[in-house]
Design a protein around this nucleic acid. Structure first.
Length: 869
RNA sequence: GGGCGCGUAGCUCAGUGGGAGAGCGCUCGCUUCACACGCGAGAGGUCGCUGGUUCGAGCCCAGCCGUGCCCACCA
């Protein structure tokens, strides 16, 4: 216990690694797969990228999940936090390719097999980083069963799912318009595309009519795609063009004849009302082309260069180069009628940051309509509930308009498609059919395909394992809203399709933590911070230096302070990161540490195990047990309602504002007297306080618990759900003392009474029979018994009456008088207001009776107080 | 274009019908024997604007202003 004596500051740097080690060795985090999911509690972690390092979003999300898991574990529910990492196709491949580039080589030079091996080696080396960081944060995951989305068992499950969905006809191959990402050289899904505002030039280009009677002018921002035009479309209702429908125009630079067609899609009020149709390079034109049976010549290839279908002089040019060349020729021929700057949204790849090149490609798709139906029903029937609820609508809107998912990726790192080709034959299965010459599809699956199976494949599916029975369905999915569609929706669909059960019953969508300047936290913007720098101390980036905080270093706040601060920051909204909240967490841990010191050192080393003293008689003891019970109820219900900021603040208010500010101050004299019943109560209160706080600030509470005489095992594994009586009478008695002491302190301050001076006084108030000594000590008064004769120099109203100050040490009588005068004025104003309100007939008639009664009570109370002055 | 949210003390944010709150910052006072990275006491808000509903509005409704995010195939 020596560190308790010597350390007046809580020292997380020393405590946390030591406690983490104890937890990991204890096996508490690894529940046996017994019972069923209905009786157990489980959460599947959103698997971080295997390449990743912990960022603030993880720290936040993991603090929430750990709070839930620890809370349920301590309530005696078998609780499992499924943990692992995601192979993260594009992200990981990009990282390793970057490394190869530094070595002066490329994946192509290495070849597929050796490249994949390199990635595995890379994973071996760096894949454990984020898991170690989770441990440092105190996350009580089941590390004994860490999963990886490319593990052998996982891969088997992925193949099984692919084959099954193919057999049902949901997975199919098609030549279709896809989002081609020139940066990664792969198709990507709609969800990986983001719109960015771009200023382009809108070119008005004249297409001469074949009849030689003039020209039709079209507007385009992508003149280079005109080389693949196959028609011009106008709105059938557009009077200006009606006579031209069915005629032909001549495609400049190419000479191809273009039919002028009518299509409702064309908006007469935009541009010239005539639209050039390029089925191979624009999603809308693709649809229009299909409707009208147009050819789909492709002039831009997957390499981002013009193909041989473009006129020879353009073939091989990069897209932007081709654009310049096309414009130059059009100008030469006088075919550009005019240009104007044009601001619009353009698709970019979230992966590579490059502008998406829409083109037609042969890819594998997954039809989602059938899978979406039960996933919609699961939410409308409230078998799955979103928190906050307004995400429900967003989910349903997206699901009801769901579109096919392009699942093939032209990458090497990932689950390779279980598809085999020989000539014109295609076979789908885990292994190639008998016979020579079968070649596997080179593509891999979108990473989210395997992620969608996470909650059940991690538990052993497709085998019927005890783990699956014990922990599936999981209870809650904790995530940010940016992957609700990408991941959550797909897990619901896949879970229902393959297990027949919802994968989780609740989805908690938490806030996104932004940098203090309101931008998103991002390493590349310089707006991110490493949570470890807050835990252990580290550089404070300039963006975080604002608000009085100097540039330089973060102090070592410790994991508990970080966790508490993050929870306190959480809300339904996005929130700006607040270092002050972390500091508040540190303040709390320090306060709790010193409260523990006072108690543990105060009760002596004697072996007095914590017990609720029979039924304590001292009002302050009954008060703290009552307040503890209320705090317990409050914190528990906040956790269960996914309201973590209020849980954190309720805990803070109890520890700081009740336990430390009042209870410990009230019992100090008794503590010095070494009263045994008090020791028992103190140890009980301390034990239950650290138990209540443990899910939020696990390290320190575990450390303190270890110092409590008679404490058994680890707090993290302690199961207890005690209740202590709520005691209204004690709450009233001590509540009055608190108000009275605060009033007296305020009076002393303004009256200029020396802070340390004990002032002679007389108590003229009811309700302090059992608490007179408390009032005297904390109010620094000495109550003269009987006597009298002394002059009353001030009267201080307190609940139930007043304290009369007798002539004592010199103080500012004028200031005291002024204080009293102010109080009187305030009381008179309140009386006036209450009287006016009660005189209002409509108020008395229409307001609820209890409100009216409360107003009457208040008026009576205030009148009494005024009279006593 | 559609949808969702936000605008409360200098800063970051609580507060969904009955007399405005927290943390930080600021001011004043305290080396009180758990904690001076502490303790005590204060100052500081026309609750974005306008109108409405109500006995009563920061809270409900409408409009406006400002601001953020999500979805969406108008060249």
């Amino acid at each position: 216990m020596s560190d308790l004596e010597s350390r007046t500051r809580y020292n997380p740097a020393e405590v946390e690694p030591r406690i983490a080690k104890k937890w990991l060795e204890s096996g508490i985090f690894h529940p046996l797969p017994e019972g069923d999911a209905a009786g157990n509690y489980s959460i599947a972690i959103p698997p971080p990228n295997v390449t990743g390092v912990l960022h603030m979003g993880h720290a936040f999300q993991d603090s929430i999940m750990d709070t839930l898991i620890r809370y349920h574990r301590m309530r005696g529910t078998r609780s499992k936090w499924i943990v692992g990492t995601d192979h993260a196709g594009i992200a990981t491949q990009t990282q390793v390719e970057r490394q190869l580039a530094q070595e002066g080589t490329t994946r192509e030079q290495l070849g597929r097999e050796r490249f994949e091996q390199r990635v595995w080696e890379w994973r071996q080396e760096h894949g454990g980083t984020i898991i170690e960081q989770l441990k440092r944060l105190g996350a009580s995951c089941d590390y004994a069963e860490e999963r990886f989305t490319l593990d052998e068992a996982y891969a088997k499950a992925v193949v099984k799912v692919f084959v099954a969905l193919h057999e049902k006809g949901y997975i199919y191959r098609d030549r279709y318009m896809v989002n081609w990402d020139p940066g990664t050289g792969s198709a990507i899904s709609d969800l990986e595309v983001e719109q960015r505002e771009v200023t382009d030039t809108l070119y008005y280009v004249d297409y001469p009519l074949a009849s030689g009677t003039g020209a039709i002018t079209v507007a385009t921002v992508r003149p280079e795609t005109m080389l693949a035009d196959t028609a011009i479309a106008v709105n059938p209702e557009d009077e200006r063009y009606r006579r031209l429908i069915g005629e032909t125009a001549v495609l400049p630079l190419v000479g191809r004849k273009l039919r002028i067609i009518a299509d409702e899609y064309v908006r007469p009020d935009f541009g010239t009302g005539a639209l050039k149709i390029t089925p191979a390079h624009d999603p809308n034109d693709f649809e229009i082309g299909r409707r009208h049976g147009l050819a789909q010549p492709q002039v831009i290839g997957e390499d981002g260069c013009l193909t041989s279908e473009a006129p020879a002089r353009f073939a091989g040019m990069a897209v932007d180069e081709a654009q310049r060349a096309v414009i130059a020729e059009l100008r030469e021929q006088g075919l550009i009628a005019r240009t104007e700057p044009y601001v619009h949204d353009v698709p970019f790849s979230q992966r590579s940051g490059q502008r998406i090149e829409p083109l037609i490609s042969l890819q594998w798709f997954m039809g989602m309509r059938e899978l979406a139906r039960p996933a919609i029903e699961a939410v409308t029937s409230e078998r799955i509930r979103f928190h906050p609820v307004n995400h429900t609508r967003v989910y349903l809107d997206w699901m009801e308009n769901i579109r096919p998912w392009c699942i093939s990726r032209q990458l090497w790192w990932g689950h390779r498609l279980p598809v085999w080709y020989r000539g014109v034959e295609t076979y789908v299965g885990s292994r190639p059919p008998r016979g020579e010459g079968w070649r596997q599809d080179p593509d891999v699956l979108d990473t989210w395909f395997s992620s969608a199976l996470w909650p059940f494949v991690t538990l052993g599916w497709p085998d019927e394992t005890p783990e699956l029975r014990a922990f599936y369905p999981t209870d809650v999915l904790v995530t940010a809203r940016d992957i609700v569609f990408l991941w959550v929706a797909r897990m619901i669909m896949m879970g229902l399709e393959f297990t027949g059960q919802i994968p989780f019953s609740d989805v908690y969508v938490h806030s996104i933590i932004q940098a203090p300047d309101g931008r998103r936290m991002s390493k590349s913007l310089g707006t991110g911070i490493d949570p470890l720098d807050l835990i252990e101390g580290g550089p404070r980036p300039p963006v975080f230096a604002a608000g009085g905080k100097p540039a330089g270093e973060f102090p070592a706040y410790g994991a508990d302070a970080l966790r508490w601060g993050l929870l306190a920051m959480s809300s339904g909204q996005d929130v700006k990161f607040s270092e002050d909240k972390i500091a508040q967490g540190q303040q709390l841990t320090n306060k709790l540490w010193n409260a523990a010191r006072l108690i543990l050192l105060g009760v002596g080393g004697e072996d007095s195990p914590a017990r609720a003293a029979a039924i304590p008689t001292a009002p302050e003891d009954r008060w703290i047990l009552s307040r503890l019970q209320r705090a317990r109820a409050e914190v528990h219900s906040r956790i269960e309602g996914y309201d973590f900021s209020h849980a954190a603040l309720a805990l803070y208010d109890f520890i700081y504002g009740e336990l430390c500010d009042w209870y410990l101050e009230l019992i100090k004299p008794r503590l010095r007297d070494g009263e045994p019943d008090l020791a028992a109560t103190l140890l009980y209160v301390l034990t239950e306080t650290v138990a209540l706080a443990h899910p939020l600030i696990p390290f320190e509470t575990e450390e303190i618990y270890g110092h409590i005489p008679g404490a058994v095992g680890l707090l993290a594994g302690r199961v207890s759900d005690p209740t202590t009586p709520v005691d209204e009478q004690a709450e009233a008695e001590i509540g009055n003392v608190i108000v009275a002491v605060q009033t007296l302190r305020a009076w002393r301050d303004t009256a200029g009474v020396k802070a340390g001076a004990v002032v002679p006084a007389k108590l003229e108030a009811a309700g302090y029979d059992t608490t007179t000594e408390h009032l005297a000590r904390l109010g620094r008064l000495s109550f003269a018994n009987g006597g009298g004769g002394s002059e009353i120099v001030a009267t201080i109203p307190i609940p139930g009456g007043a304290v009369e100050i007798l002539a004592g040490d010199g103080f500012d009588a004028a200031a005291a008088q002024e204080k009293l005068r102010q109080r009187r004025a305030k009381l008179e104003a309140e009386i006036e207001r209450a009287e006016r309100k009660l005189a209002n007939e409509r108020f008395v008639a229409k307001a609820p009776p209890d409100v009216v009664q409360a107003e009457r009570d208040k008026l009576a109370r205030v009148r009494t107080e005024l009279d006593s002055l």
